[in-house]
Design a protein around this nucleic acid. Sequence first.
DNA 1: AATGAATGAGGATTCATTCAT
DNA 2: TATGAATGAATCCTCATTCAT
Lengths: 184, 184, 184, 184
Amino acid sequence: MELFAEQGYEKTSLREIAERLDVTKAALYYHFKTKEDILISISDDLIQPVDELITWAEAQPRTLATKQEVVRRYSDALWGARDFFRFVQENQASVRDLAIGESFKGRMTAVNALLHEPGASMTSQVRSLTALFALHAGMFTVRDLEGDPEEKRAAVLEVALDLVTQADAGDTADPAGTGDVLTD
Amino acid sequence: MELFAEQGYEKTSLREIAERLDVTKAALYYHFKTKEDILISISDDLIQPVDELITWAEAQPRTLATKQEVVRRYSDALWGARDFFRFVQENQASVRDLAIGESFKGRMTAVNALLHEPGASMTSQVRSLTALFALHAGMFTVRDLEGDPEEKRAAVLEVALDLVTQADAGDTADPAGTGDVLTD
Amino acid sequence: MELFAEQGYEKTSLREIAERLDVTKAALYYHFKTKEDILISISDDLIQPVDELITWAEAQPRTLATKQEVVRRYSDALWGARDFFRFVQENQASVRDLAIGESFKGRMTAVNALLHEPGASMTSQVRSLTALFALHAGMFTVRDLEGDPEEKRAAVLEVALDLVTQADAGDTADPAGTGDVLTD
Amino acid sequence: MELFAEQGYEKTSLREIAERLDVTKAALYYHFKTKEDILISISDDLIQPVDELITWAEAQPRTLATKQEVVRRYSDALWGARDFFRFVQENQASVRDLAIGESFKGRMTAVNALLHEPGASMTSQVRSLTALFALHAGMFTVRDLEGDPEEKRAAVLEVALDLVTQADAGDTADPAGTGDVLTD
DNA sequence: AATGAATGAGGATTCATTCAT
DNA sequence: TATGAATGAATCCTCATTCAT
């Protein structure tokens, strides 16, 4: 996963992976059927915390507090598997034709569904989706901002929490969807 | 650019490009020094509206109204060169080692700088950066949401505008940066 | 074709072909799309005499003399493209999944059709088919028999001619098909 | 043998064999020294009827009736080990470098020797050899002819019997070998 | 008797790039 | 301005075989 995250999927060859693990290419092929299979095998492990989060959240009442906790836990899950999520974000073009593409998109959709009511306004939906993107992008791109990493993580989390809070306010106060929560 | 956007940089070969343009590979090499050079040449054209936006904005007073207009114009610029920006977003791993990587990051930084004061709080910086990401991601990933495309674009724009508005409020009202604009 | 005939299709690698022709593997791939394509390209040339034979024969009256002439000419065609026909005979398992498999079978069927009437008895059909096999097998397997090559070729041709003659006698004299021409 | 016959020797891998037998590759290597050894082991069993036929025939008087019986029994032996003989016929190129190549050719030569006198004319030799080829080829290629399988087998056998009968007539009546038995 | 793990050698194929014409 | 031909280097992947356990 380090290699995939550093170099991208296409630019990481089985030769490199084998060398890094100090095994032969053929040994890799004994354990994994294809290059893609290596990726699948890694991501199955790494994506598990997200699955657990989804399972947990579905058993909770769909309150604002729950939504905020989902965001916090998602942030932790992302951080715990940084390399993997960075890889997916930076290799969307490759991932699109890979099995993990679908599986990943499915999780994103599921988590997003946890953050707003089914009939929420378009604006609310976009807001909660943006909260997720903020976490994703924040995790990697914020590197380019100056400042203490921990402080940056905290700021990203805060912005994401604001977004779901506003989405929730929009859902409950204004289901029709003009969505202007700020003027409330 | 269509091919690069559809298939990704690595997976698009010069053979394919040549076939699509109905010229020979060697003819491509008469006009462009390398594969990367083809991409540079295309992106030089497509990124120009963003440069014009930056030039324009730097001559404006740095007011909230200006920031909001920057967001609106950036949204238009993105939409006008959809394929290109989608390409950059989905091929970050490849783009990172390419010349356009730096040039693109530079523009992002410049546009982001237009959206908040130099000494803004970390939260404000993240908020305006998130506004930009919302526009980027919104452009492509929102495809998976149900609903009318125009309505979706409008919602994305609204969320982005909210974010810069909140960032601006944070900058001016609370330069120290607890950043909690909602409770104000 | 020499390599394919000597070693078989699977056991002949593109490396070997390239070395024999003193070009690089990549140069081969400039001229031929796949390994199979190399074979197709060769066989297209070599099978032509058989096509000409079929065209010629279809314009002739379907007499015994014509059939005998078909056998003679087919023998010549086989001899002229020895390597190719030997290759097909000795690599049936490989050729079966290749494009030339079908094309070859088609020619065999067409030539066989020239040697007996449409409604001929099963025995007559088998006899003319055996004439063809005699020519094929005779060409290569008879190598193991002692004796002068020219004399062997002549003997094979004689046996093949006998077989079509008998098949013809069976067709005309005994269409019902007990087929015992010898006791007539 | 099913796999070898269906796919050819080169295209059948030990992995496939192991999977078909539901054992591991390593287990195969416990019982057989090499891939070729697997084939040898199978063919040793399957070729035995031919050896018995040869043994039997060598104890018989070398009459026409014996020769005809050899053909009949050979036809049965072929039919009983269809897969094997089809394999050998369709994989001559591979079999040539394998131990069974020589062993198989030896049997063919031996059976052929049973069908004509040592000093027979070239034409007679070719005729009896063709009888054998007719049986071989007939067994598989005749599939492409329309008609009842049993009827086809009978027709092939009839043609083969004719050929040895004619060969025998040539041997005894015309040892010098102009070979034109039909005009007799 | 059996196997999980491993490997060296080699397979076909694709690629970005070059260059003489 | 253009191209046909070529190439070195690399790709993913498969194979028959080995061996410690």
